[in-house]
Computed example of a mutant assay.
Amino acid sequence: MPTKTPPAQAALRQKKGATPAVERDAASPWWAAAAAAATVGMIASGIGLASVHAIYGQETRSFVDQAIAQDLVNLVVAGPATLLLAWLAWRGSVRAHLLWTGVLTFTVYNYVIYTMSIHVGPLFLAWVAVLGLTFFSLVGGLRAARPPVVAATLAGAPRRVVGWYLIVIAAVFTILWLSDIVPAVLAGRPPTGAADLALPSNPVHVLDLAVFLPAVLAIGRLVLLRRPLGLALAPAATVFLVMTGLPILVTPLVTAARGGEPAWSVMGPVGVITAVGVAVLIVLLRPRPGVAPSGRGRVVTTGARKS
Rank of each mutant, 00 (worst) to 15 (best):
A8E: 14
G17I: 01
G17A: 04
A18H: 09
A21W: 01
A21N: 03
A21V: 05
V22M: 11
E23S: 13
D25K: 13
D25N: 09
P29N: 09
W30I: 05
A32D: 10
A35I: 08
A37M: 05
V40A: 14
V40W: 03
I43P: 05
A44S: 12
L49E: 04
A50Q: 08
H53D: 15
A54M: 06
I55D: 02
Q58P: 00
Q58W: 02
D65V: 12
Q66N: 13
A67Y: 00
Q70T: 14
Q70A: 09
A78T: 15
P80G: 09
A81W: 02
T82N: 06
L85K: 07
A86V: 06
W87T: 14
R91P: 02
G92V: 04
V94F: 07
V94K: 02
A96T: 03
L98T: 03
L104E: 06
T107N: 12
Y109A: 01
Y111P: 00
V112P: 00
I113R: 02
T115I: 10
M116C: 06
I118L: 15
V120L: 09
P122N: 14
F124L: 13
A126V: 04
A126I: 08
A129L: 13
L131C: 07
L131K: 03
V139H: 05
L142Y: 08
A144Q: 03
P147N: 10
V149A: 03
V149D: 01
V150W: 01
A155R: 14
G163S: 05
G163A: 06
V168Q: 02
A170P: 02
V172N: 04
V172T: 13
F173Y: 15
I175F: 15
A184R: 04
P190F: 03
P191W: 05
L197M: 13
L197T: 08
A198K: 12
P203G: 12
P203C: 12
H205Y: 14
V206Q: 05
L207I: 11
L209N: 08
V211P: 00
F212E: 01
P214L: 09
A215N: 07
V216F: 15
A218V: 13
G220N: 02
G220Y: 04
R221C: 01
L225Y: 06
R227T: 00
L229H: 04
L229E: 11
L231P: 00
L233V: 04
A234R: 02
P235C: 10
T238D: 04
V239W: 03
L241I: 10
L241Q: 13
V242C: 05
V242D: 01
M243Q: 15
M243R: 10
P247W: 05
V250C: 05
L253N: 04
L253Y: 07
A256C: 01
A257I: 09
A257Y: 09
P262Y: 13
V266H: 12
G268D: 00
P269Q: 13
V270A: 15
V272C: 11
V272W: 14
V280D: 00
L284M: 11
L285T: 11
R286K: 15
R286F: 02
V291T: 14
S294P: 15
G295F: 02
G295M: 06
R296F: 10
V300L: 15
V300Q: 12
T302L: 14
G303F: 09
R305Q: 10
K306D: 11
S307K: 14
